[in-house]
Design a protein around this nucleic acid. Structure first.
Lengths: 138, 138
DNA sequence: CGCTTGACTTAGACATTGTCCATTGTAGGA
DNA sequence: TCCTACAATGGACAATGTCTAAGTCAAGCG
């Protein structure tokens, strides 16, 4: 946590109360929050923080590579603080809850040259979908 | 094409000019259009068609399994008429263009039981990202 | 320690994408 | 041909995100 703040400061990030709160919220719970959820939690600590600042700060954290943006549903983007270890996602098709998973195998290697259409392929995301235990029981 | 219309009629779909136009647009170009792009092309053939009807019709085609919804970016959903053959997607990180691809390997088998967290996993989507030839050249 | 300055924050307007609803229209069977 | 249930319309509304102009403040400097 203070790790994160130190890293950011070391990169010339100007430290403000707002940015600290956003970083703390992300680092506090290792879940995948939407921008609005981050905002709600930030407001609880710093009532006057604005939506625009939360969006700006999240965008900067993504640019800096400290946080990943994941679009597992077509609703709001979610922000994944676990940016430093490669992983994929397992999403509940009903309630939308997300777990980080680590499949074996290397999907990048599974795309033959003939299927690359001249693209410079740099990245792959794997999203597993299914029902979580709670939703499967219901 | 008329295949599609026949299948739909066979399932009791009431055929209207609007639905026919939407189905034809999707089937005509095998690209991944957004709802708005479908609407624009539909308007070219049937000027009075409304946005709501296009959304409704696309939703019905998805429900019927004739078309896939893909959310490769967090902007608009795209509609994939190639619903009957399993495939994954290769997306240009800059311009958003999409190609269907067929990687080797079976990512579902690559998720060990210990990484399933009790989920009933039923589906996996793989999205490759990179730069298309045009964007890489620019 | 108190300026200065440019980066940061704010509030709210705006944009995009999608959904809903009440009304009007029409496909297809009787 | 007429009826009627299903479909289409258009406009309001909702959710998410972006932009801007003006005010505010962190942090370096004297």
């Amino acid at each position: 946590m203070s790790d994160l703040l130190e890293r950011l400061r070391g990169r010339g990030w100007r430290m403000t109360a707002q940015r600290r709160v956003v970083a703390e919220v992300l680092d506090g719970e290792h879940v995948h929050l939407t921008a609005d959820e981050v905002h709600a939690r930030a407001v609880a600590r710093l009532p006057e923080i604005s939506r625009a600042t939360v969006y700006n700060t999240l965008g900067e954290l993504v640019t800096l590579g400290e946080v990943l943006e994941v679009a597992t549903d077509q609703r709001a983007k979610r922000y994944d603080p676990n940016a430093h270890r490669p992983h994929h996602h397992l999403v509940c098709a009903r309630c939308g809850s997300i777990r980080d998973v680590h499949p074996t195998g290397n999907p990048l290697a599974d795309l033959p040259e003939s299927e690359r259409f001249g693209f410079m392929v740099s990245n792959v995301e794997v999203t597993y979908r299914g029902l979580c235990p709670d939703c499967a029981a219901a």
